[in-house]
Design a protein around this nucleic acid. Structure first.
Lengths: 113, 113
DNA sequence: ATCATGCTTAGCCATATTGCTAACTATCAC
DNA sequence: GTGATAGTTAGCAATATGGCTAAGCATGAT
């Protein structure tokens, strides 16, 4: 039985915000400084920092500081658990599709009575 | 350019909660009444109701009421946008990786500056 | 040394989320 | 009708989230 997976929760939560997704998309073009990530969002630096912290805690990005510049980059394998969960769910859902369908049919026939 | 997709945000947000994921996994075994979903979680009915509302607003489940019993079932195709987003990101990230590799190769050939 | 740059920290505010209880409605069984 | 059952609604409390400003701290340029 799959226990509550905090890592999966962190990943999904990180991906649930449009700003964070746009940051990820921007980072797909290449590593970027914090300021570079701030500009297209129209958000202030501290706000962007927080988003970056969420992304980094989820393992979706990595950052390192060189002088006063922090450079952020994507961690490509970070989405693996998400993909795995999706695959598992699809397997479960698909394998029960016929049964769900049957139950729906049955409910429709016996329902209103 | 992919605009902020509210539906994607709703989906990710719905999936970010372990209780909701366990509800989905439970529903993969077959449709269930609200009370059936409440028992294994150890949560009260109104709390479960709220989780179900989030799942339904995200389109992940559908429910219908027959008499006083509400039956919930999974909507298998609901995860499609998530899967599509993942695929798109992976494509972007992979192409970025390829470029990085090419640059590394080039750098190795030309030597350090 | 001085100043600008880039990030960081601290803290405020509004709203959202997640749990609860209590009370209410609607159905089903007697 | 009476009462049990299944769900619903209303509203409370604690915490999390997402934005901001202001001030601080390094580092780089002059």
């Amino acid at each position: 039985m799959a226990k509550h997976d905090p890592q999966l929760s962190r990943l999904f939560h990180a991906l649930a915000d449009p700003t964070r997704r746009s940051i990820l998309t921007r980072l797909a073009e290449g590593a970027a400084r914090v300021t570079d990530l701030s500009e297209p969002t129209g958000l202030r630096l501290p706000t962007v920092m927080r988003h970056l912290a969420v992304l980094e805690e989820a393992g979706l990005i990595a950052s390192s500081k060189d002088g006063r510049v922090r450079t952020c980059a994507i961690v490509p394998e970070a989405l693996r658990p998400v993909r795995t969960w999706l695959d598992d769910q699809r397997a479960l859902w698909d394998s029960r599709l016929d049964r769900l369908e049957a139950m729906a049919m049955k409910a429709m026939k016996e329902g209103p009575r």
